[in-house]
Design a binder for these strands. Structure first.
Length: 818
RNA sequence: GCCGGGGUGGCGGAACCGGUAGACGCAUCGGACUUAAAAUCCGUGGGGACAUAGUCCCGUGUGGGUUCGAAUCCCACCCCCGGCACCA
């Protein structure tokens, strides 16, 4: 009988010895780079969710290989970062010890899962030979003016006295001690990704990605078209700049609101209001961002500054308020408030009894003889929706105009006085890459009192992460590296004087932003990526990964690729030809997580059923791109299926019959090849497996022993999904190993799919009443004649007159009597 | 609130462009083999009515609509999952 574990060990050893999975990176003729998102090597080991994703990607790679491509399928480890560091803190083992052990464990598990990895080209982001080039990329951005240092708020836990990453703040509280988190201003490094916002958005039009992923990126970049407007502050030189998507509503701007951090707050505040305003600003600063943005508590807060600005359209003075519902990091940090047409402004106006002036209304709701420049309206809530016939009202000479056109006219009119211009605003922020942590690549700059910020010379890279026994973040709010004197004390590359190294490390997303560029070039240690290798293998042909990275990782890696392209290092500006997301694996209807205690260990299942059956099951339980429900009882199906495949092929071999003696089986074979080919191409693995099961059921019908020719194609079609058993059976069929080296994908013949006679559905008034056998391509007359010979059809017709006949050739006929 | 995905037997899920709903598999039940069990094989398999083969009615979240014909298209609504969220 079939012993999966033995066979799997045999073939894994064969692949390893013969370099089966290592394409010749120099001379491959049809290079195909099949990439999957590399994992973070957790202490728990390989998660079934990881394996689900890798298996799905691997099947596609193996399929391409059988189609004749030279497939390069590498794997690596995203081993730096907060995840790894936090885990090290929790178990109190130094990451330099913990991470290599985790990686070794991962590699062991990955090797037994039958993945087509080229183990001679792996990447580990914590290897100095890798992060040297991560630092190099930082330097290229620095030199191009795309890496800048500026002040930004960070999350600060006053009890633990440490900086927290956003991921560590759970509903405004520290994940460790539950203390409400505060904001602190720190000087940090940013990559100016906003410079690339438009290009990142434009290219989404043509890259071959899942639609949902492109939509997610579009939303994240968040382009808004509108106008920049300036509200002068009387008796000063100041103007308050605002961004709005509704310049058409400017006549309804009855007050202004500044974010508490806005630089003009102090300037516009009058002396009698100053104490109150400052108190408000201080309170806001002490509240964390997450808490501050909770929208559920509808109560708006804010204070009047005592100051006024001039509405450039009405020339009326409008009061200036400060409120935390205006965010400094979006737009200009100041708004013109139009309570009649913005729900937030409306609520604020109601609460503080500010005036509300409607300026847009559907024409149909106004009385025909009313003057649109003087309409009285009482609103219960802001009027937001757009109607076909909306016109401007109470807007001086623009009243009566269609709203959109009116908005344009208003901007043009104000532009003459340099008080307005059209403007595009993005939700996307610059990418903060500084981390006040230990476990990451040190940011390669040196601060000199004389020369200022100096980049580390490229020949001095890598800046090694020193071993620091106590890697805990501390009260200072700076990286633990700031306590390592032998690390930060250095000399200035400019003047040679005493200087201090940057002690922050960079974000993990910088490590993962370029790892795919490294894979083909891991054998070069004097360059991040070799030009020739890169030209041959990149951009990535197929990238499969989780939707959770739809924005951050996929956006950052697109950005870095564009920058490296602009700097002349890469010929392409988009890193991935095709990206497909995979679905989420759940179990018994619930999300898989450690806290639920329903984590599934692939190791156990692979020992019990073999990697092939486990792979087959994972791909069979639902559509790969949607996900599915893991129930271990259902593993029995794929296990039986592979057993039957084994049984059929081995008995076919011992009987040794060739050819096709059953026309129906041959036809079914061609149908199966067609179906499986199409399904693998579109990643519909569940239905591909169903088609293989179906075919097997047919060749085995009534205890039949199939011929060798009937099962040989089956073995090849199965190879991407269950590679070990396919190798073994291929060898037993007399093929020379590896099946992936010596075989081409079966072709189907359309002419073999044609049947002479088929069953046609007969409907009466749209309801199925009978099936009739007719010749293929039978005419409507012939089909109708056959249908009218059926008792049941005649009974349903009940002698009535046939008023209409719908005939779908080779499929259905519908007789309408009514 | 906004964006995206989804709701089909006891369960996981099929169904191209509107054309035989429930492929394939799991579980169940019945049978064969066996001293017995496991494994294996054969059969059953949405609900209901009349009914021995059969025939009819109902049935793809809910209510309407378009059509000869709707799981599929349109309108309104309910629920679930994921992401974003005071974005001006």
């Amino acid at each position: 009988m079939y012993d999966p574990v033995q066979i799997e060990l045999k073939w894994q050893a064969y692949w390893e010895e013969n370099g089966t999975n290592q394409p010749d990176l120099e001379s491959a003729e049809r290079p195909f780079f099949n990439l999957m998102m590399y994992p973070y090597p957790s202490a728990e080991g390989l998660h079934v969710g990881n394996l689900y994703a890798f298996t799905g990607a691997d099947i596609y790679g193996r399929y391409r290989r059988l189609r004749g491509d030279d497939v390069f399928e590498p794997i690596g480890y995203d081993a730096f970062g907060i995840h790894s560091e936090n885990h090290a803190l929790r178990v109190n083992i130094h990451p330099t010890e913990l991470i290599p052990a985790n990686i070794a464990n991962f590699e062991r598990m990955l090797r037994r899962a039958g993945l087509m990895y080229d183990w001679s080209h792996t990447v580990d982001t914590t290897d100095p030979g890798y992060y040297r080039w991560t630092q190099w990329i930082f330097l290229q951005l620095f030199k191009a003016g795309l890496a800048v240092k500026k002040e930004a708020p960070v999350n600060w836990c006053p009890k633990d006295q440490t900086v927290l990453a956003n991921e560590q703040v759970i509903s405004g509280r520290c994940e460790r001690c539950d203390t409400p988190v505060e904001q602190r201003l720190l000087s940090q490094w940013f990559f100016r990704i906003t410079e690339y916002a438009e290009r990142l958005l434009d290219n989404l039009e043509w890259i071959d990605w899942s639609e949902t992923t492109r939509t997610a990126q579009r939303n994240w970049i968040g382009r808004s078209d509108g106008a920049q407007l300036w509200f002068p502050v009387p008796d000063t030189e100041e103007q308050i700049e605002v961004f709005t998507t509704r310049p058409d509503t400017i006549f309804g701007a009855t007050f202004m609101v500044l974010a508490p951090e806005h630089p003009l707050v102090a300037r516009v505040t009058t002396d009698d209001r100053r104490a109150e305003v400052e108190a408000y600003v201080r309170t806001t600063a002490a509240t964390d961002l997450v808490e501050r943005r909770k929208v559920e508590e509808k109560q708006k807060t804010g204070v009047f500054t005592g100051g006024f600005a001039t509405n450039p359209a009405t020339q009326e003075p409008v009061p200036i308020w400060v409120a935390d519902y205006v965010l400094m990091e979006y737009g200009t940090g100041a708004i013109m408030a139009v309570p009649a047409h913005d729900q937030r402004d409306f609520e604020f106006a109601r609460q503080f009894e500010l005036s509300i002036r409607p300026v847009v209304s559907p024409a149909s709701t106004l009385s025909p003889d009313a003057d649109p420049a003087a309409v009285e309206l009482d609103l219960d809530e802001a009027f937001l929706e757009h109607t076909e016939d909306e016109i401007l009202i109470n807007s001086d000479r623009f009243s009566g105009m269609e709203a959109d056109a009116g908005g344009h006219a208003i901007v043009e009119w104000l532009a003459e006085r340099e008080l307005a211009e059209l403007h595009v605003n993005y939700r996307l922020h610059d990418w903060c890459i500084s981390r006040q942590r230990y476990w990451g690549p040190p940011i390669p700059v040196i601060n000199c009192d004389e020369c200022g910020v100096q980049p580390v010379p490229e020949e001095d890279l890598p800046v090694l992460l020193p071993f620091v026994e106590d890697f805990r973040p501390d009260a200072s709010g700076v990286s633990p590296l700031a306590r390592a004197e032998e690390f930060y004390r250095t000399t200035c590359p400019g003047c040679g004087g005493e200087a201090r190294r940057e002690t922050d490390v960079s974000d993990t997303f910088l490590d993962s932003g370029w790892y795919f560029l490294r894979y083909p070039s891991t054998d070069f240690d004097d360059r991040p990526f070799d030009d020739e290798r890169t030209r041959k293998w990149l951009p990535v042909d197929m990238y499969i990964g989780g939707e959770e990275h739809a924005v951050l990782h996929l956006l950052y890696s697109r950005f870095l690729t564009m920058v490296l392209h602009d700097l002349g290092y890469l010929e392409f500006e988009e890193p991935y030809h095709r990206f497909q997301k995979h679905g989420l694996l759940i179990t018994e209807g619930a999300k898989i997580s450690k806290s639920r205690g329903n984590v599934i260990l692939p190791d156990e299942y692979m020992s019990r059923y073999g990697a092939d059956a486990f792979r087959t099951y994972l791909m069979f339980l639902g559509p790969f791109q949607v996900g599915g429900d893991f129930r271990d009882i259902a593993l029995a199906g794929p296990e039986r299926f592979l057993n039957k495949v084994w049984d059929s092929v081995t008995s076919a071999v011992s009987e040794g019959r060739a050819g096709f003696d059953d026309e129906a089986v041959e036809r079914s074979l061609h149908g199966t090849i067609k179906k499986v080919t199409e399904d693998l191409e579109s990643l519909d693995y569940n239905t591909a497996i169903a088609a293989l099961m179906d075919y097997l059921n047919q060749v085995r019908a009534e205890g039949r022993v199939p011929s060798v020719d009937e099962v040989r194609p089956l073995v090849i079609l199965l190879a991407p999904i269950a590679p070990h058993i396919a190798e073994e059976l291929w060898e037993r069929l007399g093929g020379s190993p590896s099946v992936f080296d010596h075989v081409s994908w079966p072709e189907y013949d359309d002419s073999k799919l044609i049947v002479d006679e088929l069953e046609i559905a007969v409907q009466v008034n749209g309801k199925l009443r009978a099936m009739v056998r007719v010749a293929r391509g039978a005419t409507q007359e012939a089909v109708q004649e056959a249908a009218l010979r059926e008792d049941n059809v005649l009974r349903q017709l009940d002698g009535g007159e046939i008023r209409k006949v719908i005939h779908v050739p080779d499929r259905l006929i519908n007789l309408v009597v009514r």
